[in-house]
Simulated assay, not measured.
Amino acid sequence: MIVETAGVLFRRDARRDDWYFVPLTREASDDIREVPRPERGFGSIPVLVSVGSSSWRTSIFPDAARGVYVLPLKRSVREREGISEGDTVRARLDVLDG
């Protein structure tokens, strides 16, 4: 399943580090939820992601507060693509089966 989405990059404080995430749209999240798949830790779903010229494999996670999945955006990608907190990020996700 290929999903194209856009969201505003936000920072979540953790105990030791800051984590940056892009929320998927409600529509994209609903489409992803509809496909049955095996349970994984923290409700994660493996994806291949493209943002700008960067591509990598990661997982998306459900965010109960927002009611959507969120995509973690690592520092190397943010720096390479010139993305900062509050920027709108367009991403293409190839949602994997497992």
Rank of each mutant, 00 (worst) to 15 (best):
Arg66Ile: 04
Val68Tyr: 06
Val70Gly: 02
Tyr69Asn: 04
Glu81Asn: 10
Ala64Trp: 11
Lys74Leu: 02
Leu93Ser: 05
Ser84Val: 10
Leu71Thr: 06
Gly86Met: 01
Lys74Asp: 07
Val70Asn: 01
Arg78Cys: 07
Asp87Arg: 11
Thr88Lys: 06
Leu73Thr: 11
Ala91Leu: 05
Ser76Val: 14
Arg75Lys: 13
Pro72Glu: 01
Val70Leu: 03
Gly82Ser: 12
Val89Arg: 05
Arg75Met: 06
Arg80Ser: 13
Arg90Tyr: 13
Asp87His: 09
Ala65Val: 04
Ser76Gln: 11
Lys74Gly: 02
Ala91Gln: 02
Glu79Lys: 11
Asp63Val: 09
Thr88Gln: 09
Ala91Val: 03
Asp63His: 13
Ala91Lys: 02
Asp87Gln: 09
Arg66Cys: 08
Pro72Asp: 00
Glu85Met: 03
Leu71Gly: 06
Tyr69Glu: 07
Gly86Thr: 03
Ala91Phe: 03
Ala64Gln: 14
Leu71Ser: 06
Arg80Gln: 14
Arg66Tyr: 11
Arg78Tyr: 06
Asp63Asn: 15
Arg66Leu: 14
Arg92Asp: 00
Val70Ala: 09
Ala65Pro: 00
Arg90Asn: 12
Tyr69Arg: 09
Ser84Pro: 02
Gly67Thr: 11
Ala65Tyr: 05
Asp63Ile: 07
Ser84Arg: 15
Glu81Gln: 14
Gly67Met: 11
Arg80Phe: 09
Glu79Ala: 12
Tyr69Lys: 04
Ser76Phe: 11
Val77Cys: 01
Val70Phe: 07
Tyr69Ala: 00
Gly86Ile: 01
Ala65Arg: 13
Glu79Arg: 12
Val70Trp: 02
Lys74Arg: 15
Gly86Trp: 02
Arg92Ser: 14
Gly86Leu: 03
Arg78Gly: 07
Val89Gly: 07
Glu79Ile: 15
Glu85Val: 15
Val68Ser: 03
Pro72Lys: 01
Arg90Ser: 14
Arg80Met: 11
Gly86Arg: 05
Leu71Trp: 06
Val70His: 03
Val89Glu: 09
Asp87Ile: 04
Ser76His: 13
Ala64Arg: 15
Val68Phe: 06
Ser84Ala: 15
Ile83Glu: 04
Leu73Trp: 08
Arg66Glu: 07
Gly86Lys: 00
Arg78Trp: 03
Arg80Asn: 12
Gly67Tyr: 14
Glu79Trp: 05
Thr88Ile: 08
Gly67Gln: 14
Ile83Pro: 05
Ser84Tyr: 10
Ala64Ile: 11
Glu81Lys: 12
Asp63Phe: 11
Asp63Arg: 04
Glu85His: 07
Arg92Trp: 06
Arg66Ala: 06
Ser76Tyr: 12
Asp63Met: 10
Leu73Arg: 09
Glu85Tyr: 04
Glu81Asp: 10
Glu81Gly: 10
Val77Trp: 00
Val68Met: 03
Gly86Glu: 01
Arg80Ala: 15
Glu81Ile: 10
Pro72Tyr: 05
Thr88Asp: 02
Leu71Lys: 00
Leu71His: 04
Arg75Leu: 10
Glu81Cys: 10
Ala65His: 08
Thr88His: 00
Thr88Cys: 02
Val89Tyr: 07
Arg92Tyr: 07
Gly86Ala: 03
Ser84Leu: 13
Ala64His: 12
Val89Thr: 12
Arg66Pro: 07
Val68Asp: 02
